[in-house]
Design a protein around this nucleic acid. Structure first.
Lengths: 125, 125
DNA sequence: TTGAATGCTGGAGTGAACTCCAGGGCAAGT
DNA sequence: ACTTGCCCTGGAGTTCACTCCAGCATTCAA
């Protein structure tokens, strides 16, 4: 069969790929945001494609302000299996609404900041 | 002259007005984000219209993610007088660009989240 | 006049999310 | 044999932005 191994990532490659630091990856594993990662004979981590994919989701949720605790709940739902799909949808929808609010709030504040800039420009001649 | 005093706010009123907690207001004064606030005979704070206005700006910058340290620099520039107006513009413009990036990043991540929701919906029948 | 509300200070504590460190293992090049 | 680089663990430390507290003063309505 395949002469090359299934794609597997070293910690360094995952850092490169995901932008999370090594310490952050270990931290995420410790707190259960990542399922226990496979190890090679020497005990070093070897991440699967699936792990990296999940880290992409984590990056996405994290960057939109989801607290780590909530991401852990989400991770647990995924581990529990298909019967949690509705709950996962509900969680993501609630988050989506919060993201929407964030965007709207930012836009509004941005207008105020731009007004201030315009005011300073008018004062500065 | 005027029979009523110039408008002045008690701490409670400022809390009401700005949404910052009493402790946060005291904290902001301690770290120099607020200039020393006037006191009445009993040593209690009495905020001016100007203080409240500045707190509005603080709220705006804070809600768009400006670190407290940078707001302090901005506050200091204001205290230094008119010759800092250009620097203030530069600071606000840099912040505006960061806000813009935030908005764009959020929008992009939001699309990914919505895709995930759509995927879960399709799986859930 | 009394008791609830509001406020004061200085300093300690909190929670979130990392980040760093000491002390060590293993593998490959020279 | 030795250095270099990558990685390991458990636990301590850091940063940010508050938030809380003890102990006390003042204000005000009933």
């Amino acid at each position: 069969m395949g002469a090359t191994s299934v794609s597997v990532y070293t910690p360094r490659q995952v850092v490169e790929e995901t932008g999370f630091s090594l310490d952050t990856l270990r931290y995420y594993e410790r707190i259960g945001l990542l399922e226990s990662i496979d190890r090679n004979a020497a005990g070093q981590r070897r991440f699967t494609e699936k792990d990296v994919g999940w880290l992409g989701m984590v990056r996405c949720l994290r960057d939109t302000g989801m607290p780590v605790a909530e991401m852990i709940r989400f991770a647990e739902m995924i581990r529990e299996g298909d019967h949690t799909v509705h709950d996962r949808i509900a969680l993501l929808e609630a988050h989506d609404r919060r993201v929407q609010e964030q965007v709207e709030n930012l836009r509004e504040r941005q207008r105020a900041i731009r007004n201030k800039i315009a005011y300073y420009r008018s004062v500065a001649d």
